[in-house]
Amino acid sequence: MYDKGKIIPGLIVFVGLVTFPIWYGLATTAGPLPNPEKPTNAKECVEPVEFMRSSHMVLLNEWRDNIVRSGGTRKGTTADGTEYVRSLQKGCMNCHTSKKKFCDECHTYAAVNPYCWDCHIQPKETN
């Protein structure tokens, strides 16, 4: 083998880089799995759980575009006829009261940093 002194360190660097997640996982302690707090005052959300889990951001985006840009209504009705307010702070957070205990649980886990709070004033939470 030729140029051992350069090729072997190079290969070690290569293996170190591609196995980064493995040894990083060994070196760090993973936090608990996300467990968003369930609301106590309601049993159903505005859409089925599966939809909310994957597509709540699309819904919020639609509300924003509809209300802020097209002057749409604040009133929404679920499939079973319950009325709700189409609003992040007055609607969603009416049940999901805590940003920390609900939103941040999954967002932190998946490194999602939504820009809701660029405009909305973030609710103050003491704990």
């Binding site: 936090g31 886990y109 998946a110 490194a111």
Partner: peptide
């Protein structure tokens, strides 16, 4: 994609994401 492979997520991944 390292955001899906690390926990806690390193700062440079957040920076890339942003």
């Amino acid at each position: 994609h390292l955001r899906l492979f690390t926990d806690p997520i390193p700062a440079f991944v957040h920076a890339l994401e942003f």
